[in-house]
Write a protein that binds this DNA or RNA. Structure first.
Lengths: 156, 156
DNA sequence: GTGCAAGTTGAAGTCAGGTTGAGGTCAAGG
DNA sequence: CCTTGACCTCAACCTGACTTCAACTTGCAC
């Protein structure tokens, strides 16, 4: 924890797999805090790697940065987060993952029956017309949570 | 199939659940073709509803518009698509869905073990460090296919 | 004390998948 | 014929998560 343990942005980038631009971006967005040298360069504590690991996992399962920030904000500010702290955070995603899986399985099964029947009917097909809403409702119900839609993710 | 069977954009919007703006957008993007009245207004064949149902299902499972277009392009141009045509298209998504589910399940199981061990370690944790690449590789392997990342999707 | 890789900033650009708005036109009922 | 709601186009804007750029500064090795 001496000053000499601090990492440069390049080192953090290398060890975390996030490019420096993302690290700066996360800082701007309030997900990370950094110390600075007298000259203004960022110096990261080792613990940032854990935070970044958390962020990566969150992003991977589709948690948006806002929510990630909320999660991270719940970590104790002074002391080093304990195992229990991280566990609590992770557990909520377990539920999210379960939901996502459930939604996908339902969709797959719906697709199966569609293939079976060959219908693809607006009127009858479960997959294409989730809420049995045929030619009625306005906005069109979404079967899957928005989370599950894909993202560009052209970088990395 | 008389001229009188044609639908206005408003009717299609209502029946399909897509807002008119999306219908116009899909047309610009080459996913839909429309007839026009002498005055330039769109008139849709009834079959567009089926196409739109397909598009909705595709989008729901995270297929991008490019790929949807490719799929639709494989439909016979002259004749009405048969059951077999739609089935062939749908079947390829079945594979995609299976992949997505598999990836999520793997992720969930990884998360389970993380919660179990409370580690969340960059060095050891499967979830946070998928490729066992700890502090080595440059870009950082992605556990999930890009498809699975979420998208803003603020509209609808 | 100098060279230069690595760091800094703010502004702007990118991507998909649309939406919104202004300003104008169409079509159908009365 | 006239009104009115539905429709038209084109351009600009939106979100989220970043990346890229230009112009400049730091910090460390030699």
């Amino acid at each position: 924890m001496d000053a000499k343990d601090l990492l440069t942005i390049g080192e953090v980038a290398h060890r975390s797999g996030f490019p420096p631009s993302s690290l700066r971006y996360y800082e701007r967005e309030g997900l990370l805090r950094t110390a600075r040298t007298s000259g203004g360069q960022r110096r990261y504590e080792r613990s940032v790697l854990r935070r970044l690991a958390f962020i990566r996992a969150a992003r991977t399962i589709g948690v948006g940065l806002d929510e990630v920030r909320e999660g991270l904000d719940q970590l104790p500010d002074g002391r080093t987060p304990t195992r229990a702290d991280w566990t609590r955070l992770s557990r909520s995603w377990r539920g999210r993952l379960d939901e996502q899986i459930e939604a996908l399985v339902a969709l797959r099964d719906g697709l199966d029956s569609c293939i079976g029947c060959g219908c693809l009917s607006l009127q009858r097909c479960r997959l294409y017309n989730p809420g049995d809403r045929a030619a009625e409702g306005g906005t069109g119900a979404q079967l899957l949570p928005k989370l599950l839609r894909r993202t560009p993710a052209q970088g990395m």
